[in-house]
Design a protein around this nucleic acid. Structure first.
Lengths: 124, 124
DNA sequence: CTCCAAATTAATAATCATTATCAATTTGCC
DNA sequence: GGCAAATTGATAATGATTATTAATTTGGAG
């Protein structure tokens, strides 16, 4: 079986896609550490950087100094709790409502971001 | 004449409100340094932090490791160039289209963010 | 299966934005 | 002017991210 990704790279990517809480590099590192005891934090950063470059993952926001990531490429918005740092997906029917505006002023839109910052149910 | 803000604090705030390019702390510091030779970078950070806390300014995004700020409280979106870091305001007529979704799941929305990431006219 | 060059990684140090500290200065008010 | 509280400058500390480099892993060829 041919594998395009190294073991570690695949594990990091899977974590990015399967987790719904939009983890930071450190959170991914800590999740994988038990299964990959020799994993290095630098490897997590390096691969995240690669995924972003390749358009396989996006930055959601930076909370408390940590960049939070998203491996889900299906268009959606986020509810971001500034208290506890939880991030929840919101799927719109009409995300396209704001489509046009990006093309103004000769700007080439590559990614559209809609986020709601506030307090989640537990923190409000 | 009563002044609520110290001289430096006022200058930092004015910079945040008048500049349309959403500067980082360092950029504000460098802009003010000629007029205030004894200004300290720590003071800029300290006051930005205060303004955010008081809801007088918001974080737009983090580009190349630097948080970019906005002192304009009028609802608007941003065109963010990931190449050169330029940020342009976009004013919507119907920013309210996406209003409802934030209140889902018991979430209390305090701030709504719409951003378009891509390449500006010069960089595309 | 073995060998090899290229890709990837672990470990570590270096960077760099941001925050904390604290003594000195400034501020508003009497 | 004088004083207590707020603010600041200078500096050190923190902490996330990036760079470096030698060692390891990878996939393909023989």
């Amino acid at each position: 079986m041919r594998r395009n990704f190294s073991t570690k790279r695949q594990a990091i990517y899977d974590m990015l896609v399967s987790r719904k809480d939009h983890p930071s590099a450190k959170q991914i590192y800590e999740s994988l550490k038990p299964s990959y005891p020799d994993l290095s934090l630098g490897t997590v950063y390096r691969n995240i950087s690669l995924f972003k470059q390749e358009g396989m993952a996006d930055s959601v926001c930076t909370l408390k100094g940590e960049e939070r990531l998203d491996g889900n490429k299906k268009p959606h918005a986020h509810l971001i709790c500034t208290e506890c740092g939880s991030i929840t997906d919101v799927f719109f029917d009409r995300l396209d409502v704001i489509e046009d505006k990006g093309e103004m002023e000769g700007f080439l839109t590559e990614r559209k971001v809609i986020s709601f910052y506030g307090k989640c149910r537990n923190c409000r």
